[in-house]
Amino acid sequence: METRRQALLDELPRLRRYARMLVGDPAHADDLVQDCLVRAISNLDRWQLGTNMRAWLFTIMRNVLFNNLRRARRSPFLDCGGDAMDTVPVAADQEQRMRVLDVDKAFTRLPSAHKEVFLLIAVEGLDYEEAAQILGVPVGTVKSRLSRARNDLRTSLDKSDKPQPQDADFAERIRRGA
């Protein structure tokens, strides 16, 4: 039978990653995880074995983040800056590597609210209901926010793309075998 300690231990990598992708700076992220863990441990007897610890921990994490930001008198929705990656993940080819770097940079510039829906749905794979509970908003808001987050990310990536040859000219040259 799984113990509570093991359940908590199992969630540490994801918790840490969530914090890191939200705030960027590794030291800040780990401080958040520390605060979150302290709270989780002291409230652990309120969590029932077999229920969704991940969602519970993410909720605590958000509370910690907002409380810390409020104490520092900053808006919770200001971007905290910093890239999530120290090194580029291994990618299959050069184009993919460049894209990963670009996406990382563009992601860090998203508002926190957009980062959160991206992380919870597209990265953690939570369903809308779970994400809605963690974020404290209706399911419809989660959906529209995620859609907007994706499109804002894409728009900012489009802006930073280098100019390409006209598609029509390129297609024509290909067809003529040039």
């Binding site: 990598p13 994801r14 993919q96 894209r99 992601f107 597209a122 990265v123």
Partner: peptide, 18 residues
């Protein structure tokens, strides 16, 4: 959009292995 998500997931997968 799919490629953007794939890139984000690659970043995320890498962070999980720390």
């Amino acid at each position: 959009l799919q490629a953007d998500q794939d890139a984000l997931r690659a970043i995320a997968a890498d962070l999980l292995s720390e």
